[in-house]
């Protein structure tokens, strides 16, 4: 069972639709017991970093997620991925979950459009369980104005937009995608399948 964590932000149904399509059992929930009982967690998110972190703290889901991530696979998507890092500078400096070293900063891409909305190519930095079967040049769908800045050892796949944009990050059993795998066609579904099949 995969728990899609509902903390009051973002479109959770797209992720659920993709998991249903792949025939993985999932549940959209904010209930700590259900989150604890699940064998994998997905932290989605659309919106602004400070609001989302505030919502996680108010519900004490932040502590629960950090505790659960010690023993089971966790996947953060888009803003959910950004929250895995130590801090963000969106609007104001805000502490994140700190599960992966690094921070979140505005995209620096002079002359390019912000937000970055669209399909970009992936390049490989390090193999990880989610990148299995993904080829360099495969494209995924991004919608973001901020990006992670982290050590290369935590980057599995990246894209280029102005500079390097971490696409898929990982540390042990914690994963994050800046792009939306649930909106990235076959390539995205393949990564969700990799996640769903993890032991």
């Amino acid at each position: 069972m995969i728990a899609i964590i509902d903390y009051g932000a973002g479109n959770l149904f797209s992720v659920k639709n993709a998991l249903d399509h792949l025939e993985f059992e999932s549940i959209i929930t904010s209930n700590p017991l259900e989150i604890h009982a699940a064998d994998k967690l997905i932290l989605p998110g659309v919106g602004a970093f400070p609001d989302a972190m505030r919502l996680l703290k108010e519900t004490t889901l932040d502590e629960l997620i950090c505790e659960e991530a010690k023993t089971k696979p966790l996947l953060g998507i888009c803003l959910g991925m950004q929250m895995l890092f130590e801090r963000s500078f969106e609007f104001t400096e805000t502490k994140g979950l700190g599960l992966i070293p690094g921070e979140v900063r505005a995209i620096e891409a002079p002359g390019l459009k912000i937000p970055n909305i669209g399909w970009s190519e992936l390049f490989l930095e390090n193999e990880c369980p989610l990148s299995e079967g993904i080829n360099e040049g495969d494209m995924v769908y991004y919608v973001h104005s901020y990006q992670a800045v982290t050590d290369k050892k935590y980057i599995s796949l990246y894209s280029e937009y102005g500079g390097l944009v971490p696409g898929l990050v990982f540390r042990d059993n914690v994963f994050g995608t800046q792009f939306h795998p649930e909106k990235s066609g076959k390539v995205g579904l393949h990564m969700l399948k990799n996640f769903g099949e993890m032991k």
């Binding site: 149904f13 797209s14 639709n17 399509h21 769908y141 990235s184 076959k186």
Partner: peptide, 8 residues
């Protein structure tokens, strides 16, 4: 459609 199509 959203249950069957995984592009925007």
């Amino acid at each position: 459609t959203a249950q069957n199509v995984f592009v925007p």
